[in-house]
Design a binder for these strands. Structure first.
Lengths: 246, 246
DNA sequence: ATCGTTAGGTTGTCAGGACCAATAGTGGGC
DNA sequence: GCCCACTATTGGTCCTGACAACCTAACGAT
């Protein structure tokens, strides 16, 4: 039974075959049907059982290898990765992450204005200095406790934002619904002391260490969508990053 | 000229064709021959020009898309990514990163002992409590200034370490040369205040914010190789992470 | 018993072809 | 002048077939 989890493909579905297979394998791994270390049948046998070609089967496996769920070694075979890779930092907002783990985030919009871009903001958004940009400052809480101060700058021409909506949902979610495809990001993670005002907002003692995250996000055309400068309470938050050495 | 950078493939070489192409395209992008936003010829034309099949050409392009250097859009074409993605956090040590950017790192081994694994260390290395493990504490400097305190725990049975070697080279480099294949890692990035002793070692004021990085590294069999607990001066160091939303 | 050799199995790479789906530009109709 | 359908272009998916590189384990010679 091991090595041959129950997988069925629907050729009438518009979902790519390799993706159908990948998702079902992923589910089998997460459900424990394929425990860590379990060996899969070889690619040719798997492809034959499912009525697929080997390249398609390989593509499904490759997808899971990239995700860190499977490990392939030539001459040996394909195994379920032993190391449980936790959720990696991805193109998701803090809001997504929190609500995904059932932590009921709430957001307070502290300020929401249109400004003339100047200096670092103009450079980060790759617009001429003086261009009108959206400036956003929010306080994110979870279970009533403050967690992070989120400062964002957006190109004003991209999307219409409403403060009421931003109190209910994450920025990335709103952007995606507005038809913006978030494709890539560059982020820089550091630390510094909290200023007096920041400490007060976050309910931390003066001078407490804060995690800082600067992120520039690009859409699929390579245009800068958003520039964020976020502050997290180091006492309650850390970044998880998973690495695989392709 | 644009869209057709000079690429030649050597079929006698053991280097995979797709990789040869990818490397040369990458070089053309970095040298500026293919500026950001430039459009490549379509896949079929490129493959034909190089005498390759389309799947091989696609594999080369896919490699660079994964790396964030190219952007593909159906019906539109393949373009050089506008956003210059800086070097991402990878399966490299701080030493590799520093020497790669010509910063001449030096290392002082503060302690180097064999201990009985206890509690968190045993759990992190996935060995029974009480197993003999290597404990390592180092101070990394660059240009004479202290940058980080590196605390590592290793399975004692994996590799023989020599303090003199560790003063000269990075831990990961030593491990790789010893035949250990580093395949994946899980790291957690946070921040906290420096203790008195830590502040003294790092030449920071008492209570200065430090970036913390806990990393568990796995080899290609999924066995834990190393567990590291590192402290960086937040005033001189930050983590760069590149994200692509496949 | 130990070490080098060999055989079998498995993933890695590559070719060449076919059809599908999304995009953007064009031209016609309103 | 504006909107919509059409079409050419281009990447996305999938197939068949083949050979190469690599790892493990069993085997035989020393």
């Amino acid at each position: 039974m091991a090595g041959r989890p129950q997988v069925v493909v629907d050729r009438a579905s518009p979902v790519p075959l390799y993706f159908q297979v990948a998702r079902q394998l992923e589910q089998a791994i997460e459900s424990g049907e394929l425990p860590p270390g379990a060996r899969l049948d070889n690619e040719i046998a798997l492809a034959e059982e499912l009525g697929l070609s080997r390249p398609t089967m390989r593509q499904a496996i490759q997808y899971l290898v990239d995700k860190g769920l499977l490990v392939r070694r030539r001459g040996v075979g394909t195994h379920v990765a032993r190391a449980r890779v936790r959720r990696p930092v991805g193109l998701t907002s803090l809001f997504d992450d929190l609500s995904g783990s059932g932590r009921q985030p709430t957001t307070a919009v502290l300020s929401h204005t249109v400004q003339a871009a100047s200096g670092v903001v103009a450079a980060a958004l790759e617009v001429p200095e003086g261009t009108a940009v959206l400036a956003l400052e929010r306080l994110r809480r979870t279970r009533g406790e403050p967690l992070a101060i989120l400062r964002n700058h957006l190109r004003a021409d991209l999307v219409q934002l409403d403060s009421a909506v931003l109190e209910e949902r994450g920025l990335y979610e709103v952007l995606r619904d507005a038809g913006v495809t978030l494709a890539a990001a560059q982020q820089s993670i550091g630390a510094r002391k909290a200023s007096g005002a920041e400490a007060r907002l976050l309910d931390e003692p003066r001078g407490a260490p804060l995690l800082t995250m600067r992120r520039t996000t690009f859409d699929d055309r390579g245009v800068v969508v958003e520039y964020g400068d976020h502050l997290y309470r180091a006492s309650r938050y850390s970044f998880e990053v998973a690495l695989t050495g392709r």
